[in-house]
Design a protein around this nucleic acid. Structure first.
Length: 571
DNA sequence: GCCGTTTTCGGCCCGACTGTTTTCAGTCG
């Protein structure tokens, strides 16, 4: 997605929301949402499509919507939307964020009880005036109160690594009754954050699986418990949905619940084109329901004439077309990685000694690894003074010549990029290092132009090898700083500065979309962990996940090369 | 509102679960 399109996407979705609440033709809001999805997935700003007239060729964007998008893009507002907004009180839209409360419910609550905000809804439920409405009852009232409580509580997205640990614990809990079991959804697609967790099970004894599931110790609320589907809320606020299917439907179910939604819509439409019907049970003949495929995902893709599409690619970003034409990339895999250069030690803010980091890297089968402690200005991180840096260089040299390790240990530094773009050590010291990771750790709130200059200046230093965690974002706590990505990626390519994909679980930086953009600029990448403890070297899987979501192959990634070739790349 | 090798009008992905029903509407994914 191009971030510049965000406002247009919200505009279209808001129109859809209002149309749903006011109860117009059922299909008009669907049309607006479809157009919003299309525009959300565009790689370039919508203005580009308006300029060359290709906007009305976008799927789901016809005459009426393209006119509205043009007006909005040109003037920053839209008459039609202003008029719609006047028709309903402003607080009404927020009610849609409540679980189990949809547009029909909001519409009726407004029409019959004059409810226009979450506060008013809460009061109405507490006074039991909602349950007196026709079609509503006590349980509905309680459910709404619960949703309100949840909505006001925790943030509703979880980082990927949290999802991984919950998933493996639930899978362990259920595995005795499951023939096949796997986490699906955004977790399986390796999205940077997940909203909920989907688990798919193949089993002959569905009731037993369901019983076991709803009695998982960490469950706080059971939302639903059915024969094939159950849904619970954990104490952490994470919702978990479980589906149980027959073994012969397992692949179809996994495919269906892995998504993304847009990928599924495209797949189903392709199925229809080919005379089939695709649902969570099988791919079947459109007439007669005869089973065609469904035991495995590959079986379904095969029957549709597609290459197998890795879950990380299933975002409706052109992967289905590529699969049809047999030109999907062979994605980089964890087993391709031959070294990790972003490792801190207890010389600065890490908690493991150099030797422990080296041994952990060796145990992973790496050919090389890099020590990259903080530079002197990172006071909080106990950055190394020049003298200490000198000592560390000598220490690593000694370890390499000790004969104790098979692995080659490189010594570098994660050097602060100062506000003016200079690096935190002088060139003489930098020149003696095997590699240099330049990172921004201060003054995150610079203006875009200033930050861009800062990064460009840093990248023009001859000794910088890698741009570390290029956007500085931390999931759920710190936004990416502003900079002109296009200029930075062009400079990275021209100056041969490698872009880091940082696998630290709170960072995941670059993210998938920026990776795709950088790849279009023909940049080279390096996958690192930013480990502060020897066990964190395993986080390389998260860097790999982002890289795969960004369509990277081993060729795009510097640290898939053997030591010899790699040395020439960083040298 | 969009779209078309079944259609320029009449469809629009589709199935599970819940609650309030007495056969179904609303919500979700």
């Amino acid at each position: 997605m191009d971030p510049a399109n965000g406002p247009v996407v919200s505009m279209l979705n808001e129109i859809a929301d209002i149309l749903e609440i006011t109860g117009s033709d059922r299909f008009r809001p669907i049309a607006y949402r479809r157009a919003a999805r299309t525009i959300e997935a565009l790689p370039k700003p919508i203005q580009d499509y308006i300029k060359d007239g290709s906007i009305s060729e976008l799927p789901g964007v016809g005459e009426a919507i393209s006119q509205k998008v043009k007006e909005y893009a040109l003037t920053g507002k839209l008459d039609y939307l202003e008029k719609l907004r006047k028709g309903i009180p402003p607080g009404l839209l927020e009610l849609l964020n409540l679980q189990e409360v949809g547009p029909k419910t909001v519409g009726r609550l407004y029409m019959e009880l004059k409810i226009t905000s979450i506060d008013e809804l809460q009061r109405a439920c507490e006074e039991h005036s909602v349950s007196k409405l026709k079609g509503f009852g006590e349980k509905t009232e309680e459910r709404i109160l619960q949703s309100i409580k949840f909505y006001r509580g925790s943030s509703r997205r979880f980082i990927l690594s949290t999802g991984d640990s919950v998933a493996s614990s639930i899978i362990a809990h259920l595995s005795a009754n499951a023939k096949l079991i796997e986490a699906a959804g955004s977790l399986r697609r390796r999205k940077e954050t997940i909203g909920d967790l989907d688990v798919i099970v193949a089993s002959d004894d569905s009731p037993a699986v369901m019983d076991r599931f709803v009695s998982y110790p960490d469950v706080s609320i059971v939302y639903s418990r059915g024969e094939t589907k159950s849904s619970v809320l954990l104490n952490s606020g994470l919702q978990v949905d479980l589906r149980v299917v027959d073994e012969k439907s397992y692949g179809a179910a996994l495919l269906y619940f892995t998504g993304s939604k847009d990928h599924n819509v495209e797949l189903r439409n392709l199925a229809i084109d080919r005379g089939y019907k695709l649902n969570e049970y099988s791919l079947s003949q459109r007439n007669g329901d005869q089973f065609v495929a469904g035991r495995t995902e590959k079986e379904v893709y095969d029957a549709l004439g597609l290459q197998f599409i890795e879950p990380e690619l299933r975002e409706a970003r052109g992967e289905i077309e590529a699969a049809r034409e047999g030109r999907l990339p062979r994605l980089v895999a964890e087993s391709d990685i031959k070294g990790d250069l972003h490792c801190h030690t207890n010389w600065t803010d890490g908690s493991s000694p150099i030797e422990a980091m080296i041994e952990a890297a060796e145990n992973r089968g790496y050919q090389y690894m890099g020590i990259s402690d903080h530079s002197k200005s990172s006071k909080i991180a106990k950055g190394l003074s020049e003298e200490m840096m000198e000592r560390q260089l000598k220490r690593v040299e000694k370890l390499n010549s000790s004969g104790k390790y098979q692995i080659r240990v490189l010594c570098g530094s994660e050097v602060d990029i100062m506000p003016d773009g200079r690096l935190d050590y002088d060139d003489a010291l930098l020149s003696r290092m095997d590699f240099v990771i330049g990172s921004v750790h201060s003054r995150f709130n610079m203006e875009k132009a200033e930050m861009t200059e800062r990064l460009l200046t840093a990248m023009s230093n001859d000794y910088i090898t890698v741009l570390g965690h290029p956007t500085g974002r931390q999931l759920g706590s710190r936004e990416a700083y502003a900079f002109d990505a296009e200029r930075i990626f062009e400079a990275a390519r021209d100056k041969k500065v490698i872009l880091e994909v940082n696998g630290s679980t709170e960072r995941l930086d670059l993210n998938d979309q920026l990776i795709m953009e950088a790849k279009r600029h023909k940049c080279v990448f390096m996958l690192n962990t930013d480990s502060h403890h020897f066990t964190s070297l395993a986080n390389i899987r998260y860097a790999v996940s982002m890289a795969r979501r960004g369509w990277l192959t081993a060729v795009d990634v510097a640290n898939t090369s053997d030591l010899k070739e790699f040395s020439s790349m960083i040298g």
